[in-house]
Design a protein around this nucleic acid. Structure first.
Lengths: 190, 190
DNA sequence: CTCGAACTTGAGTGTATGCTCAAATTAGAG
DNA sequence: CTCTAATTTGAGCATACACTCAAGTTCGAG
């Protein structure tokens, strides 16, 4: 834990370097050497501040999770459309953090139990947020149905985000508009 | 390349071991030692058959990609509902291969250019397959619109599959049914 | 300015990784 | 059975990995 200004600056450089590397080369390429080279420090400095490389990585992962919802205070007032647009802004606006979110959190969870648990808790909060927004617009639909709608929305959003990450020429925002339209149409079914 | 029966058996054991490990511990845990231990061979035997560890892994990845569509001969005749159900069967019925598909192919693509290209080609074929099925049922809709619908369907399917992989208690098939229903409803809009 | 705490370096540790290679063993054809 | 090709083993190579540690340097308070 850094106490002097110098240490605090070093800590920030290490976190920045870790974030960039996770976004560029994923978990596998984010070695201690790569982090230290990019941050301009030696391993001993790194371990003066962090107990392990994993600690630095989990800091960046936690940051990425926190970034998906840029407006936690909006809970209880926002609409589904606003939530969808906020997600789209996150994905297209902060591509490094978004890449870390998708790659490390989502798929890292397939092989890492801690990451899996962390992501599931986060996902549940996201589903609940969307379901609240759905029921606020349509109070007559049940909690379970709203939850299912929220799951489908989030699944589609995540799937589109993956495609966009792989192929930046993919028309992500166009498909986001279609999701909003489709959601509106399905509302009229009720 | 194995020529005698003994070598052919060894090759199969290595591929089986690689597949299991990729499904259980992902790319990072699939070390040469782990593969050889599980296959019951030494490294020298491995390198008598494969040029590199990567060659064995790409064999298994190619197999996973080929497995997503269990019925390539159905192209031109199948319905969207059938394609969706086939995907669901793939995900729930072969969990090791499905896990490899999602984890290695889809998200591995975020950091590996070869995997990314490979997956994008595969994804385009999948989108085209779904779009064909959509237009077969609704010939009046345009190619572009059918392609967009197909993208959304596949995005949602992939997103749900990720959730199911992370949390087997998640009601994957229930959500698949809702996707089929939603798709039918959106057809009636036209 | 001094002095102790914090930070940084450089050199190293122990272990794991993918891969090589020569000798030993097995397989398969005649 | 012989003999050659194929396969396998065991021992090792070179390198990379996360991390340690003592000495040197910088920081910050008094």
């Amino acid at each position: 834990m850094a106490r002097y200004q110098a240490g605090i600056r070093t800590e920030a450089r290490i976190i920045d370097a870790t974030r960039e590397l996770l976004g560029e080369v994923g978990l596998e390429g984010t070695t201690l050497k790569a982090i230290c080279d990019r941050a301009g420090v030696r391993a001993g400095s790194f371990y003066n501040i962090f107990d392990s490389k994993e600690e630095a990585i989990m800091r960046v992962v936690a940051e990425a999770i926190a970034s998906v919802d840029p407006d936690p205070q909006g809970a209880g007032t926002d609409t589904v459309g606003e939530l969808i647009k906020a997600y789209a802004r996150f994905i297209t606006g902060q591509s490094t953090v978004a890449r870390i979110y998708l790659q490390t959190v989502v798929s890292g969870g397939l092989t890492d139990n801690d990451l899996a648990k962390r992501f599931l808790r986060h996902h549940e909060r996201r589903v609940a947020r969307f379901a609240d927004a759905i029921r606020r617009t349509d109070p007559e639909i049940g909690v379970a149905e709203a939850g299912e709608d929220a799951e489908l929305l989030l699944a589609a959003l995540n799937g589109l985000a993956f495609h966009w990450m792989l192929q930046p020429a993919f028309d992500f925002t166009g498909h986001i508009r279609r999701i909003i339209d489709a959601h509106e149409w399905l509302r009229r079914r009720r």
